[in-house]
Design a binder for these strands. Structure first.
Lengths: 345, 345
DNA sequence: CTGTTAGCGCCTTCAT
DNA sequence: ATGAAGGCGCTAACAG
């Protein structure tokens, strides 16, 4: 299919017998121009259906007004909230966004960066893939002075701005809540240990235990690669222990839901036998039965803040010094953790 | 923040004492070039960290290798699956995608089209906003010969290719299944009547009724604007009727889930008292209790097919004649509709 | 095999 | 108040 011809300034100029620069000025509403000429040009442009060519402008001013976004996956609710916040914010400030998904692959992530840089994006917003364990590609971006910031899945290794949630504190809130409900044998279901969030949430878990006079000896940690199969498997494994925990803190909602399914199958009552808390506050958390207590992450706001900060840096409204934005999580208490039943229940 | 300087072909050329075209050819791996020169250039490019400037190429060849995507919202699981399919497919074929969300606003949708066209996208993939009731902006795209296709939320008014699911058939499957389960008073919970999918799914609903000797008189239709509040409200209204339906077909999963919540609150057993079927197969459908029978829409595949077709049109692999791809839906039977309990249950 | 030239659509001096 | 010229980075036609 061949695209229909796009009207250019040149054509408007010819039709009106003026120069291209005059047309350019008229369309930019430059003051140093006769109002009549301006009016004639603007009207002609409209009647010819003239459409500004951003590409040409970008090349000219070496600024594309496009931001690149890389996320591990598009279909996760959390990341799509991020993107939603990024898109709305960028759009409001006159930017478009180009999106890539790494599909949790390191190689793909590197390739994504390459195409986005080639596309001359003015800056990048990156959330790291699960596989990303060395940061040469980010270091290179940094060395080449291509503005970028990281969100959610970040690394401390590169001195750029980051937007995260207070994972440790969120986990602390979750486990603290379980302890308040009277639980004392609380298991932590963790994703891969080298994952940043696995570590951070473990910190919060242990902190909360300590707060209640418990030590690491009282902790119980199960590790999964987060596939539904392994999630099931470790839950079953846990159920084989002589002494069951009275609560489980699952690192992330989908894991919590998988755990819940197994417990229900096995006739274990939630929260009576085992209380359960997740993390993220996915839409599913509200509708499972029992409804899942979880830690809410402000995905949309993360996107907004990340984008505004990056654009502020680009526009030199703020300095380039790397800043770390740590958004607060909140505990959403639902039924899966209510050991102390209310009368109204 | 000022972006670091990007190396250009010109600089490579100067450093090596060759012309820019030679560099260009070397980097394109042109055969009509001395291998040694080519090697020298490629190595120099690498050592200088040369990065191709797609923007310049786009301007030159009047093809941006970028596709524009407009969806009503980014955070819905169905649309993010679409986008995931679009992104993967586009990427494989050497295209990037620029994404906008209309947030279900007609004005926003028009504005999105404008920026994407200004950005010189080679084609557009559009899913219409809920508010979009006239199609002048699409007609204009069409008249200006800007290649685009529509998916999921489409209109028949514009002769371009479309990718949809067989909504009527999906609804038919759902209601047919309920009838087979012995239900005879089946209510249809519909979104706004002017919505394409509301209409299509109603068709399937009525067809299925007819198949079982029922007529429009035996139908019961409740209409909501799909907000959680109104979803609740119409469910409560239905419950006030003297004679309750024995099954409900809800036009879309979130609506089905809202209905389910109200029914459960009121102590109505699902599926024993009222069976329930949704549409879309959102992740939530699998985890609510009882698990929700629903019609599955292949979101990712829709994105793939739409993108491949649009790119095929652009590359003139297929003709420009508008084609209509109607993907088949499948019924996913879960607990919310099983009137006839199996022994194993 | 390689260089020269012209130009994609726009903007920005520099003239007039 | 307007025009002419040069150039952003790259490619393609034409020479040689």
């Amino acid at each position: 299919m061949k695209k229909g011809h796009q009207v250019t300034m040149k054509e408007i100029a010819k039709k009106l017998g003026v120069s291209v620069s005059t047309v350019s000025r008229a369309l930019k509403d430059s003051p140093e121009l006769h109002p009549d000429t301006k009016k004639r040009i603007v009207e002609m442009a409209k009647s010819m259906n003239y459409q500004y060519n951003l590409l040409a402008q970008s090349l000219r001013i070496s600024r594309s007004k496009v931001l690149g976004v890389i996320v591990p996956e598009l279909t996760s609710h959390f990341f799509s909230s991020n993107i939603s916040g990024i898109q709305d914010t960028a759009y409001k400030r006159g930017y478009n966004i180009m999106i890539c998904q790494s599909n949790e692959s390191f190689e793909q992530e590197k390739a994504n960066i390459r195409t986005l840089v080639s596309s001359q994006v003015d800056g990048l917003l990156i959330s790291l893939s699960r596989e990303t364990k060395n940061y040469g590609h980010l270091q290179e971006l940094y060395d080449r002075e291509i503005p970028f910031i990281m969100f959610d899945r970040v690394t401390e290794e590169i001195p750029v701005s980051k937007v995260t949630v207070d994972d440790a504190h969120g986990a602390f809130l979750a486990v603290h809540h379980l302890l308040e409900q009277g639980c004392r044998k609380i298991a932590y279901f963790s994703g891969p240990e080298d994952l940043y969030i696995s570590k951070k949430r473990k910190e919060g878990y242990l902190d909360a235990l300590r707060e209640f006079g418990l030590s690491e000896k009282d902790s119980q940690i199960y590790i999964t690669d987060l596939t539904p199969e392994m999630n099931r498997q470790i839950t079953l494994k846990m159920l084989e222990e002589k002494e069951l925990p009275d609560a489980i803190f699952a690192m992330i909602d989908p894991l919590a839901v998988d755990v819940m399914m197994v417990l229900k199958e096995k006739g274990i009552k939630i929260p009576e036998d085992i209380a359960l808390v997740g993390f993220t506050n996915n839409p599913t958390a509200a509708v499972v039965e029992p409804s899942l207590t979880t830690v809410s992450q402000p995905g949309y706001e993360m996107g907004q803040i990340a984008t505004n900060h990056l654009l502020d840096q680009l526009d030199e409204i703020v300095s380039d010094d790397p800043q770390s934005f740590v958004l607060l999580t909140t505990l959403v208490v639902r039924d899966s953790s209510k050991k102390t039943k209310m009368i109204s229940d």
